[in-house]
Nucleic acid binder design. Structure first.
Lengths: 336, 336
DNA sequence: AGCTGCGTGCGAATCGGTTCGATGACGCGG
DNA sequence: CCGCGTCATCGAACCGATTCGCACGCAGCT
C-alpha cells in the first residue's frame, strides 16, 4: 500500500496521486475522485519516513524531559501534557527524550539524527550543555526556563522573582512582619536551578524593601519533607506568621504539620506562593496563590513553530506573571 | 553532512562507509580508522528518515496516553516515565499520542503512517476501538490493562481483583466485619473501565466469601472528592471500620476527613488498597498497600520488542500481583 | 602458468515519497 | 490552417541511507 500501488489501481502515475493529495497542481475532478476512492478503500497514508526524507522535515517536535528518577512535579507533568496536545492540534507529533545527564544517547540521537524539526527543553540549568549543543547544530529550540545568558535563546518561563515578591508584599500589606520561603530542595538550589534561585532573589528583595524578616528554607519535593520542614520552622522561628512557597509537592506535608500543631489557617498563619492550580484548589482551605498557567506548553509550541519557520528572526521570550488568585489562606497577621 | 560527504572526505565509496558503521561486512582497519576520523570531526550521524525508509523500521515506539484533560494519576505518570526510560535503554525513541477519543488524527497518523514499530496503549477500556484498529493494521502492540476478550492480545496489567480481594481478607483476618471500597469515579466505573470493575468484583467476591458487609463508593480522582466521600461514608455507614481503595488521588482528602473527625488510624479505622508506593509512603501513618510496581513499563517494552521480532508467537500476558506491604494503617477492628 | 579463494572496495538498485520539466490534447484567435 | 496558451498528466531525478552482486588484487596451491 504505497503510492505506486494507489497509482496502479487508479490507472494514473505516482506523481498524479501525489498532486491529488497535496493539491500543489491541478488534477481533474474526475481522476481526483478515482484516486480518492482507491485511497479510501485501501486506507492508504503516505509513509512518514519517505516524506520526511524528501521534504527534509519530520513534522515531529522533540521534548526533552527530566529523567524519571527525579520525580516530575505536577507542574512539569501538566506542561508535558499541554505540549503534546498543542502539537497534536497542529498535526505534529512529539518525540520524548529523557535526559538529565549532559551526554545522553537519546538526546544525541534526537538532535543529530534529524529526527525532529525542533526541540523543547525542560528543566534547564543556568549553565546547560544541552543548550550549547543545540546551538552548535542550529536546530531550532525553545527552553522552559532560561540560562544564565538569556538573550541569545528563545524561551518561556514563569517570573518567579516577581511572583514571589508579590506574595511577600501581599503578606506585608496584611501586617506580617516575619515570613518564610519554603523553596525546593537544597541540592537544586545549590546546583543553580533557576526557579529556586529566582524565587529566593525575589524573596530577599521584597523582604528588604519592606523591612521585614525573611527566613529561607530548602525542602525536598516530598510531603514528608514538607512536614518536617514546617515542624522545624515552628520550632526555630516561632514568630513567623507568613509562608511563601514554590514547592507544591511539600504542600500536603505542610498541611499535616499545621493540622497536628492545631494551627488554624489563615487565623494563626498565612500561606501563599506559586503552585499549579490543582494543588492550590486541593489545599484546605483553598490556597491563595499564583497559578502556573497551563498555556505555557501551548506557547512554547507556538514559539518553536515560529522559530522553525523563520530561524533568523531575533529570539523571542515569554515571561509569565500570572495574577495571584485570592483564595482563603491569607489573612491579617495575628495580633500578638 | 550525509554519508556521501563522509565518503568523499575519506576517499571511499558510500557503501564502504555504511559497512564500516554497521560492521556487516569486513572493512580494513586502515580505512575504518580514516572513516571514523572524518565522522568524529564532522559529528556525523545517519539520517533517521533515510534509514527508516530503507530498513522498513523506525526504531521508534508509540505510546498512546490519555488526553491531558483527564488528569493523569501518579501511577500513569510513573508508567510513562518508565516506558520512556526502558525504551531509551535499548536505543529506541518514544512517540507520544494523546488519544482518548476513538478516531483521533494523531493516533491515525502514528499507526498508518508507519511512524512506529510498535505501540503501547494505556488506559484501555473493556471495549476499545483502538485495539480493533491496531489489530486490523497488524502493527505489534501491547496494552496496559486488558479488553473484554483478553486472549488475542498482548498485555500487562495489575491484578486488581486479586489484590483488592487480598486487602479485604487482610481486614477480615483482623476482625473487621464491615468494609468499604473507595473506587474511582462513577463515570469511569459506568464506562467499563477495567481496573475499577475488577476492583469491584474482587471486593464483592471477598466480602461474600468472608460473609462480611461491603459498601461500594465511587469517588472522583481529587482530594476534595475523597474528603466528601469519606464524610458521607462516616455519616451513612458509621459501622464501617475498614477501607480499601484504588483511588490514590483521593487519599489526601480521605486523610483530611479523618483528621477533622478526629479518627485515629489504625485504632479507629483501618485503611489499605492498591496505590503507587510514593502515595503509600507519603500517607500518615504510612499506608499498608499493594505497591503498583514501577517495572510495569519496562515489562511492557520488553513484551512489545518480543512481539515486534516474532509477531506470530502467541500473545503473552503479564499479570502483576505485587505483595501487600504491611505498613501502619491496618490493625485489629475496634471493639464496640 | 593457471585456478581458486579471500580480503576489500565499488557501483547500482532500492525504499516511498515529492517535484521539476516535458509532453500531448484541446480550444481559440488571427 | 497555424501558432499559442492552458490544462492534465507523465517520466525521471532526487532525498540519504542499506545491501547485493561484482570486480580487482594478491596469495597459495597444483
Amino acid at each position: 500500500m504505497n503510492i505506486g500501488e494507489i497509482a496502479r489501481r487508479a490507472g494514473v502515475s505516482r506523481s498524479t496521486v501525489s498532486y491529488a493529495l497535496s493539491g500543489k497542481r491541478a488534477v481533474s475532478e474526475e481522476t481526483r475522485r478515482r484516486i480518492q476512492a482507491v485511497i479510501d478503500e485501501l486506507g492508504y497514508r503516505p509513509n512518514a519516513a519517505a516524506r520526511a526524507l524528501k521534504e527534509g522535515r519530520t513534522r515531529t517536535l522533540g521534548l526533552v524531559i527530566p529523567p524519571a528518577s527525579l520525580r516530575l512535579t505536577d507542574m512539569q507533568l501538566g506542561f508535558v501534557a499541554s505540549v503534546v496536545e498543542a502539537a497534536a492540534r497542529v498535526d505534529l507529533d512529539v518525540l520524548l527524550s529523557p535526559s538529565g545527564g549532559d551526554h545522553d544517547r537519546s538526546f544525541e540521537r534526537m538532535i543529530s539524527g534529524r529526527r525532529v524539526d525542533g526541540v523543547i527543553l525542560m528543566e534547564i540549568r543556568l549553565e546547560d550543555e544541552r543548550v550549547d549543543r543545540l546551538q552548535q547544530t542550529g536546530l531550532p529550540f525553545v527552553t522552559i526556563g532560561h540560562t544564565a545568558n538569556p538573550h541569545g535563546t528563545c524561551w518561556v518561563d514563569v517570573d518567579y522573582a516577581t511572583l514571589i515578591s508579590r506574595c511577600v508584599h501581599h503578606l506585608a500589606d496584611l501586617g506580617h512582619r516575619q515570613v518564610a520561603l519554603v523553596n525546593r530542595s537544597a541540592e537544586l538550589v545549590a546546583s543553580g536551578y533557576g526557579p529556586a534561585q529566582r524565587a529566593l532573589s525575589g524573596f530577599t528583595e521584597a523582604t528588604d524593601q519592606r523591612g521585614i524578616t525573611g527566613v529561607h528554607l530548602c525542602c525536598a519535593d516530598e510531603a514528608s519533607a514538607g512536614q518536617s520542614c514546617m515542624e522545624r520552622l515552628r520550632d526555630e522561628h516561632p514568630a513567623v506568621t507568613g509562608i511563601v512557597t514554590i514547592n507544591e509537592a511539600a504542600l500536603p506535608g505542610i498541611h499535616r504539620a499545621l493540622e497536628q500543631a492545631r494551627v488554624v489557617v489563615p487565623r494563626d498563619l498565612s500561606i501563599t506562593g506559586v503552585v499549579a492550580r490543582h494543588w492550590a484548589e486541593d489545599f484546605r482551605p483553598p490556597l491563595t496563590a499564583a497559578d502556573v498557567p497551563m498555556e505555557m506548553g501551548t506557547q512554547a509550541v507556538e514559539l518553536l513553530l515560529e522559530r522553525i519557520s523563520t530561524p533568523d528572526a531575533p529570539p523571542r521570550h515569554l515571561l509569565f506573571t500570572p495574577p495571584i488568585s485570592l483564595r482563603a489562606t491569607t489573612g491579617p497577621a495575628p495580633v500578638r
